[in-house]
Computed example of a mutant assay.
Amino acid sequence: MKQNFTVRQGALDGVEVFLSVAQHRSFRKAAAELGVTPSAISQTVRVLEARIGAALFIRTSRSVGLTEAGEQFLARAKPAFEELVAASEVARGLGQRPAGLLRLSVPRAVIPILLELVASFCRAYPEVEVELAASKEVTDLAAEGFDAAVRQGHLVAPDMVAVPMTPPFRLIVVGSPAYFAERSRPAHPNDLRQHACLRWRRSNGALALWSFNDNDNDNDQTIEIAVAGPLIASDFPTVLGAAIEGLGLAQLPEPLAAVGLRSGKLVEVLEAYAPLRPGVFLCYPGRRQIMPKLRAFIDHLKSRAAGDGKVRVQADASRAGSRKRG
């Protein structure tokens, strides 16, 4: 079959003109309403009637009426056109102010870190609903209908715009006080072979190796160690919970373990060997216009990050002043 490389005229061409003429029963009044000439109205109606294949109006020198085909067309076209206009207004509203559904693809392990940010955003923008779709897969944002994704630095594609959500963080090894009550603390990564280690399986099916700084050689390289233990999970939160229960040691992003460390439920070991990771980023395609809901989320994220930075600077300055006075 020969392909047609031209776009055919739309089925809606001329419908607005038809509805205006049908409402006013006048070509002249329809022209005044739409801001065009009466001859332009007549030409548009003639083209519409030719495309449909039926006369829609009965014209006399004194009046304009509808044919039976015109009555049938009006009965169906009017509500459909009004619905189309309403849909355009809804879309225009979403393009002018932060509103609607903001869909984010997020690794399950990162969700606990995001909750405070999302909660403050929802309070600031009540017309926006946030959906956090937890997945360990690297999703196709356009194909899956997501506005943006949260990803670790090494997973950010080159064609994505990336906004930092966290500073770089350490990958640390932790265990519970109950676990260490029965075992000595490891002093070197090689000592992990004598410990129960809680592992996690990557989305590709492989068991993740544990990474460490190679402090034994002055080359700024990392070493990877295959560990063993009683539990394998597919996400960090499960591994974290098992570590708190004393089942074994876990290697986790420091922000995820921060609450457990502050509460004393977890203890860090092998601090000197902890590698640094590039942090977490909000990513979105840069080739398309950013909807106001996503722009608001980005601005809120940057504002919170700037505020947190000021707090840290002030706190550091206060501690420095206290040391100086002391």
Score class of each variant (00 low, 15 high):
C197F: 09
N204C: 07
G241V: 01
N219D: 15
L252N: 02
A206Q: 14
A242F: 02
N215L: 15
P253K: 00
I244V: 15
L252H: 04
R202V: 05
P230L: 08
G205N: 10
L266Q: 09
I225R: 06
L207E: 12
N217T: 14
W200G: 01
W210L: 14
A243W: 02
A257H: 05
R199M: 14
V267G: 00
P237D: 09
G260N: 07
R202Q: 14
R193A: 12
L261D: 10
A243Q: 06
R202F: 01
L231H: 11
Q194D: 14
N213G: 01
L247S: 05
S211D: 11
I223Y: 00
I244P: 02
K265I: 00
D235T: 12
D191Y: 04
N215T: 06
R201G: 03
P230Q: 10
T222Q: 11
F236D: 14
P189D: 08
L240S: 06
S234Q: 12
D218G: 04
G246Y: 03
G246Q: 05
W200D: 12
G205E: 14
I244E: 10
S211N: 07
A243N: 02
N213H: 10
V259D: 11
A257Q: 07
S203V: 11
A196V: 06
T222V: 05
N190C: 00
S234I: 02
W210H: 14
I244M: 10
L198C: 10
Q221A: 12
L209D: 12
V259P: 02
W200Q: 14
L209H: 08
D214P: 01
G248C: 05
D220Y: 06
A250R: 05
D191L: 05
S263A: 12
I232R: 13
L209P: 02
G205V: 11
S263D: 14
V267A: 10
L247Y: 01
A233K: 10
V239I: 13
L249F: 00
A233F: 12
N213T: 06
G205D: 11
D218F: 13
L256P: 03
S203H: 11
E254P: 00
A226R: 09
I225L: 15
E245V: 01
A208E: 14
L247R: 09
A206T: 14
D191N: 06
